[in-house]
Amino acid sequence: MTSSTGSGQALAEAIGDIVAENTYSLTRDSLVRYAGASGDFNAIHYRDDIAKSVGLDGVLAHGMLTMGIAVQPVVEWLGDRGFVVDYQVRFTRPVPVDPSEGASVTVVAKVGAITDDGARIDLTVTFNGATVLGKAQARVVLAGA
């Protein structure tokens, strides 16, 4: 939202271009930190005994944590050129977080569509080679567009 006044900005990228990708190492510490930051203290995100009592193999990452980190490559690529006006995901597969190994989540952000004022960025979010979020899309608008 800085310099350009009058004429709108435009993205240099084309449909299909990868704008950002990153891999995040989640640990049990990450889950405790997110629980405190978000206020979501559901015990299945930090206690194996509780997770097992509801039929899980062990502690899972908060879906909202996965959603939160998945959009970060987009936010950082965009910088202060604009903001994420719409962001949606479907939670299709849980992310188990091993107490010693943690979990490695990879995000690939690709231009899905160019719009009048920005773009739709499609996210592929994987853990252990499998997609964990469905229909993960972030629509960005450029300042001054």
Binding site: V54, G63, M64, M67, F83, V84, V85, D86, Y87, Q88, V89, R90, F91
Partner: peptide, 15 residues
């Protein structure tokens, strides 16, 4: 105890 989060969306006017 039976609730599972299916979908989530945020639609912003401004940050």
């Amino acid at each position: 105890a039976r609730v599972v989060h299916g979908d989530q969306r945020f639609s912003y006017t401004r940050p």
